[in-house]
């Protein structure tokens, strides 16, 4: 197969970027999108050029490292699919394809198609955990969990943290990511003690990072490679409201050292 690519090139975070055109041919329909870029990069290297920088690692749709906007859609045209799991057979022979990085003020470009998504990690650090040390714990069967609840929790927990929701959102909101993290733990009995402090801290950090606000466009769910439902955003908002109305911001300040 043969493709005309328009690729965003930007030598460094503080440099100006531009679209550059490339022609690639002799591509197998069984190549993944990233393998097509690998081939282009090998050819660029051989001909004395600079290969295109892009992130990828596991190449099986789970690590969340790959991050391209392809023809205006995060991870490209196939629903519920990461870029690394997108195959060239999904495109017409001879197609023109535009490739950009995930764009958002909170995701600064590092180089070419590579962005900095560390804002997501900072949201997680603000509260996306259950406070437990390593060591002896109760037997899990002492606290039964309905299978439906465990399933729902996995529906949220299967978020791969790629940032497609942010890239897809016209406002650049990180609500789906944050909601998935909050809901996973809010659903499970283990997450209850810190439930309301967690939702407040994580949403607060999310705002500090400069992500936009949610206007219910629903683009995040449509472009999420794991098809995570925006119902989780509603769930998070309900928890946030409950937290604000009924729970003090942080009652740990009253704990006395013994």
């Amino acid at each position: 197969m043969k493709f005309s690519l328009e690729v965003w090139r930007q030598p460094a975070g503080d440099a100006a970027g531009t679209f550059t055109s490339y022609e690639v041919d002799e591509i197998s329909p069984d190549s993944s999108f990233l393998e097509m870029l690998d081939i282009l990069n090998e050819r660029l290297t051989e001909s004395g050029g600079e290969p295109i920088a892009f992130d990828s690692d596991c190449r099986e749709g789970i690590c969340g490292m790959c991050s391209l906007v392809i023809d205006g859609q995060a991870h490209g045209p196939q629903r519920a699919t990461t870029t690394c799991q997108l195959y060239m057979r999904q495109f017409d022979d001879g197609a023109q394809i535009t490739i950009e990085p995930f764009r958002s003020g909170a995701f600064p470009v590092v180089r070419d198609l590579v962005v900095d998504r560390s804002a997501f990690d900072r949201i997680l650090r603000a509260g996306g955990y259950v406070t437990v040390h390593s060591g002896p714990k109760p037997d899990p069967n002492d606290i039964p969990v309905e299978p439906e609840v465990a399933e729902k929790a996995i529906d949220a927990a299967c978020c791969i943290g790629c940032g497609a929701c942010v890239a897809a959102c016209p406002n650049g909101a990180a609500m789906l990511y944050t909601a998935a993290k909050v809901s996973h733990l809010a659903l499970l009995p283990q997450g209850q003690p810190e439930r309301f402090a967690r939702v407040q801290r994580m949403t607060e950090q999310m705002q500090k990072e400069g992500f936009g606000s949610c206007r219910n466009y629903g683009e995040c769910e449509a472009q999420c490679p794991k098809a995570i439902s925006i119902d989780f955003i509603g769930r998070m908002n309900r928890d946030l409201l409950r937290a604000k109305v009924t729970q003090p911001i942080d009652f740990r300040g009253d704990m006395k050292t013994q």
Binding site: P138, I143, I154, Q190
Partner: peptide
Amino acid sequence: IDQAVAQGVPFAR
């Protein structure tokens, strides 16, 4: 397993 469940790992039930 005990440690992971306490952290909120949603094992199948």
